[in-house]
Design a protein around this nucleic acid. Structure first.
Length: 814
RNA sequence: GCGGACGUGGUGGAAUUGGUAGACACGCCAGACUUAGGAUCUGGUGCCGCAAGGUGUGGAGGUUCAAGUCCUCUCGUCCGCACCA
């Protein structure tokens, strides 16, 4: 029989569909595994990145299911977002229609890959039933004070007509359309992720076992905790009178350098700068210069050269009592700390550059323990304090601690922890999103919708032009009554950031569909399935999605919905799929279409190639002839299986009665089985498992024992099932009534050998191969070893002998 | 600048605790079978060398009986963050 992938794949896909083969059991006493690949955005078609993502997840899910675990392996759709609106603008198709049609098409594409997803738990985040609970969570958070409204300068994308979170701005441009963003002042809703900054940082330590170091490092960096001293600079009397401000706060992580302060710098937006302009403390030229700095977007300032304006105001140094000038500087950020810094040019490279430019004093107060201060730059490392009364001789951290204590004792300042993480702005001025369930009442202000009125659904009759927000123009939708006073009121027209939906979808999956009408998810179900045992997705989500999902989980825990602290126990970040060294993209014209690949070779070949070509965490370079190679292997497997006799149990084999080639074949087969345990449970380096299976098949091919063939095929089909399920189900059904799909014990006797090959090296260089009996004593091995390399011992004396059992002999000669 | 990852044949990649570098595959070469082959099978294939042998994991040192693996320095590539005080 010839291998016919299309026939086999259709047959088994139909079987799985009809038998609901992959639904998790309700039995909560069984050991569980929750395996989750990040859900896709329904863009229209799947691409190779999806194939890779789901092939990895499916392999892990199938492994555990086959080994007696209750497995949850769901799929859904991250269905809100701008592309649907862009399609509406471009082609006039309604976002809802566009989205659900894309889902229907992509569902078929995924089905053609033979992925073992639960059918029962599939949903799209734009389903009103999903929105309902998301809005309820939002209201809970509002009532808890975790959501608030704030007016401020926001990143506005003139192209998409929407506000962007800081994380969505890349190099000053929109993350989607690359348009330069501008600053616009407006109200929006924020979620207080900063309230969880410490816990989010702290718990990263618990993820070190299961998450890539890189992702943890990126999140740490993003949260950006720093510990330091906050104190206030008092302005001298005359200065205070001039600007009407008595003092201002500064934050420093280097209190040990405090005696080196030669000026103070404030952000262009700082109240002191504003006051100095308003009260005419600075002349009009200086005022204009400050205004100019303010106008420059914050993100561009870091490209610009350091600039400043002296305000003609002076602050009093809290330790030395010196008068130091106050400057406005473009490198000081209003959003971080208090928007003002003490400047120590001798020990901070920014302050140094600035001081050089404006000829301000540079006063070293920290010195290297040994050696000299560097020339022409700031000394930024830890050192010994010298020239700071009362603290001289202290080093680095001890100096910092001492100075902080001094400030605290005198009541002049305190130890403070600052974070770079900002609150999460979730408002979007867009149609295709979950409406923010708030109502604006003239009498009662901004109030939440009543929970019994949820979900607040989107109106279907909208015109999407790409300008403004269609909800804002929809008078009858906006018109509502106030849930507090019953008077006429208006709906909030902003919708939620799509990252909100992806922050809790993994919890929704834990609960069976039949309960979805009543609840978001049950505590019992979430308690059983959570945390996700293995999460798989792209590194591009290392910060945003993964941080928000961690945050949301903690909030829902504190709201009493779940009992987990962290949603994802283990994380695998897959590498990109490349062709000709570049990411596949339409514009580069290097896209390989998964549908065409399946059409030509079948899903099993696609899956095999993608798992064989590289370890999952690495980039994968596409190679058409290697795809051929993968297909060739499946044909060979199918052909060899055709020569194996049917049976329903693992045959019992008398190992000692076997010939050498038969023993070798068994050893290779069981080596592959051993490898499988490690790969499916720990390492996920499927490429090495596939190689081991290939070796085993090659070894089986070199012998004819029918029982060794039966046993070998029994095990290899078991091992390959998670990777190439269709062919394995088909062959296993025919040969073994699928009894080979279960846990298989490793037979240790196959690893016992009569003779061992060992290498003999002389002075570390391999010189000969010897064969010794397995129970040979060290002396015997050395004897044989020495006689195998006479040429290298001639005229020399052996000064050292090393025997590594089962490996090699090293003779050191002189 | 800070943080992280990586560097192995013509190619993708193996080598889990230091122990025969290059498993497995792609490609290539030779042969067999064939009317034919882009099918299948067999053998070969790091580099230099006719050979003996030498040499080889980005580079330079070091530790060790033994280093792709450990240490120091250095070069290069990629990714993330970035005037965060």
């Amino acid at each position: 029989m010839k291998y016919n992938p299309h026939q086999i794949e259709k047959k088994w896909q139909k079987f799985w569909e009809e038998n609901c083969s992959f639904e998790p059991a309700d039995d909560k006493s069984a050991p569980k595994k929750y395996v989750l690949s990040m859900f896709p955005y329904p863009s229209g078609r799947i691409h190779m990145g999806h194939v890779r993502n789901y092939a990895i997840g499916d392999a892990i899910a199938r492994y555990w299911r086959k080994n007696g675990h209750n497995v949850l392996h769901p799929i859904g759709w991250d269905a809100f977002g701008m592309p649907a609106e862009n399609a509406a603008i471009k082609n006039g198709v309604h976002p809802k229609k566009w989205t659900y049609e894309n889902i229907a098409y992509m569902r078929k594409e995924l089905a053609a890959l033979g992925l073992s997803f639960s059918k029962d738990r599939e949903f799209a985040t734009c389903d009103p039933l999903y929105t309902k609970y998301e809005q309820a969570f939002f209201i809970d958070m509002w009532e808890r004070g975790l959501v608030y409204r704030k007016k401020g300068y926001l990143n506005w994308c003139p192209h998409d007509q929407t506000v962007l979170a800081n994380e969505q701005v890349i190099d000053g441009c929109c993350w989607r359309c690359d348009t330069p963003i501008v600053q616009k002042e407006m109200y929006q809703y924020y979620i207080k992720i900063t309230e969880y900054a410490d816990e989010l940082l702290e718990d990263l330590g618990r993820l070190e076992e299961g998450w890539p170091a890189q992702v943890i490092a990126m999140q740490r960096n993003w949260i950006g905790k720093s510990v330091g001293l906050e104190f206030s600079f008092r302005l001298d009397k005359q200065s205070a009178r001039m600007c009407g401000i008595e003092s201002f706060e500064v934050f420093t992580t280097r209190p040990d350098t405090i005696c080196g302060v030669s000026y103070a710098a404030v952000a262009p937006e700082h109240p002191i700068a504003k006051a100095a302009i308003e009260r005419g403390v600075v002349d009009s030229a200086a005022a204009e210069k400050i205004a100019q700095m303010q106008r420059m977007p914050v993100r561009e300032r870091n490209m610009a050269e350091k600039e400043g304006v002296p305000l003609g105001l002076y602050a009093v140094h809290p330790v030395t009592g010196e008068r130091v000038p106050v400057w406005v500087a473009n490198f000081v950020l209003m959003e971080y700390g208090s928007g003002a810094v003490m400047a120590v040019p001798a020990h901070d490279s920014r302050d140094y550059d600035f001081a050089k430019r404006y000829d301000l004093p540079i006063k070293p107060v920290v010195f290297p323990e040994d050696g000299e201060l560097p020339e022409g730059e700031a000394f930024v490392e830890d050192g010994v304090v010298k020239g700071c009364d009362g603290f001289d001789g202290l080093f680095g951290q001890e100096a910092r601690d001492a100075i902080i204590s001094w400030f605290e004792e005198k009541g002049l300042g305190k130890k403070v922890i600052n974070f770079r993480l900002k609150d999460w702005g979730v408002s979007r001025q867009r149609y295709w999103g979950a409406p923010i369930p708030m109502i604006h009442c003239r009498e009662c202000g901004v109030v939440p919708e009543r929970k019994e009125n949820l979900p607040v659904t989107l109106p279907d009759d909208v015109e999407i032009t790409g300008e403004g927000n269609p909800l804002d123009r929809h008078a009858s939708w906006k018109d509502t009554v106030c849930p507090e006073c019953g008077g006429s009121a208006e709906r909030e027209t902003d919708t939620l950031d799509t990252f909100v939906q992806s922050s809790w979808y993994f919890l929704r999956y834990t609960t069976p569909r039949r309960l979805w009408e009543e609840t978001a998810f049950t505590k019992e179900d979430a308690g059983y399935w959570m945390p996700v045992d293995q999460y798989i997705g792209g590194i591009e989500h290392a910060i945003l999605h993964l941080l928000y999902a961690r945050f949301f989980t903690k909030v829902l825990r504190d709201l009493g919905y779940v009992n987990v602290d962290e949603p994802f126990k283990r994380l695998l970040t897959q590498g990109m799929v490349l062709k000709d060294g570049a990411k596949m993209s339409k514009s580069k014209g290097n896209v390989v279409d998964p549908d065409a690949l399946i059409e030509k070779y079948g899903a099993d070949t696609a899956r095999l190639f993608i798992l064989f070509a590289a370890p999952p965490t690495q980039e994968l370079e596409w190679n058409d002839s290697a795809v051929e190679g993968a297909h060739r292997f499946l044909r060979k497997l199918y052909d060899r299986a055709g020569r194996v006799d049917e049976c329903t149990r693992l045959p019992e084999i008398d190992h000692s009665a076997l010939q050498k080639s038969e023993k070798e074949a068994r050893r290779k087969v069981y080596e592959a089985l051993k490898k499988g345990e490690d790969v499916y449970r720990e390492r996920f380096t499927f490429n090495t498992l596939i190689a081991a299976v290939m070796e085993a098949l090659n070894a089986l091919d070199k012998q004819q024992n029918p029982q060794v063939w039966q046993e070998g095929m029994w095990i290899l089909l078991n091992l390959l099932e998670p990777i190439v399920p269709h062919i394995c189900w088909d062959l296993s059904e025919t040969l073994f009534k699928r009894n080979n799909f279960g846990f298989i014990d490793i037979v240790e006797e196959v690893f016992e050998v009569d003779t061992i090959q060992m290498a003999v090296s002389v002075n570390g260089k391999p010189r000969a191969q010897i064969e010794v009996s397995a129970d040979a004593a060290k002396e015997e091995i050395l004897e044989i070893a020495k006689s195998s390399v006479p040429k290298w011992l001639e005229g020399k004396s052996v000064v050292k002998e090393i025997v590594v059992p089962g490996r090699l002999v090293n003779l050191v000669v002189k």
